[in-house]
Design a protein around this nucleic acid. Sequence first.
DNA 1: TTAATTTGTTAGCTACACCTAACTTTTATG
DNA 2: CATAAAAGTTAGGTGTAGCTAACAAATTAA
Lengths: 168, 168
Amino acid sequence: MSTRDDLSDSLENYLEAILELEETQKVARAKEIADRLKIQRGSVTGGLKTLSEKGYINYQPYSYITLTAKGKRIARDIAHRHAVIKEFLLKVLQIDPLTAETSACRMEHAIDPKSIERLVCFIEYIFTCPRAGEEWIQSFLSYCAGGNRKQADCKKCIDSIRNEVAQS
Amino acid sequence: MSTRDDLSDSLENYLEAILELEETQKVARAKEIADRLKIQRGSVTGGLKTLSEKGYINYQPYSYITLTAKGKRIARDIAHRHAVIKEFLLKVLQIDPLTAETSACRMEHAIDPKSIERLVCFIEYIFTCPRAGEEWIQSFLSYCAGGNRKQADCKKCIDSIRNEVAQS
DNA sequence: TTAATTTGTTAGCTACACCTAACTTTTATG
DNA sequence: CATAAAAGTTAGGTGTAGCTAACAAATTAA
């Protein structure tokens, strides 16, 4: 069945790491998983057994590790959640890359599927709709920085996008 | 010092529950905390001891529980994170209330302070800037639903806000 | 004011997720 | 090919966060 919550945050992290390793090195090895997750080699073994029992990975002691079809599906979903949240933090909220990465790493386990789907759409919408877009985000940043904007600015701002749209 | 991570997600939940109870009933009792967090009475005692040792709550066996100044400060921060994330999910992404509540409950422990600050600002910006606002969100929803909009619609859309701004 | 109910605590248990240290298997090298 | 190094596993330990069941204190009602 592979419902979302027969996996702890920790096991989700293992799957995510294994996917990345598969993609870059064809195959995952326990030591690399340990390195990526910043835990000890000995800690990994147990997690691998659990993932194997649950049918997410192909695992034989002393051998390399690969994802099963089910494991790959879930791992991609997790990686997707990570990427979407990070993109939102980076491109919309304009959070610095390090913080965005750290928060995405934690939030990816907490967000529900519908919200991720909407977030994808929302990011796309922002950078598609002429009323939003890059300079709208820039304007958001200066709003953040304290500058409450005047009504007059809004008129000019709207005229400027009106012209842009008219030209295209 | 009360840095953010001498508290586990679980202890943060206790603090949040205690704050709510203080606000509605003046005082928190172990049973109500258990009920709110959907755990057993016996499980609460340990958490209360830890919070007390760390200086977040005033706790004496068999008596009611209150937040210390430090505890209240942290609890309010957690509640704030919760509220902001929920508001974003509800008002911006238009997620249903139940899902928004559940996700906010989990995400509140994962997000960093800067992102929360930015998110507050972003929500405010959306409902302040004439280029965004309520109907822009509505338009986002139909974009989500699959309707890719035409260039012509964008022109009309921009003209309509232009007139609105001109009138006000 | 005594008895019943509710609330709170304790003790002992499980499961998870990590740790270290010792050991085994695999691999790479001289 | 023998052996040193690297990688993987095992065993035993820690801390957290729950659980249940038995008991104790406090509150409520008869």
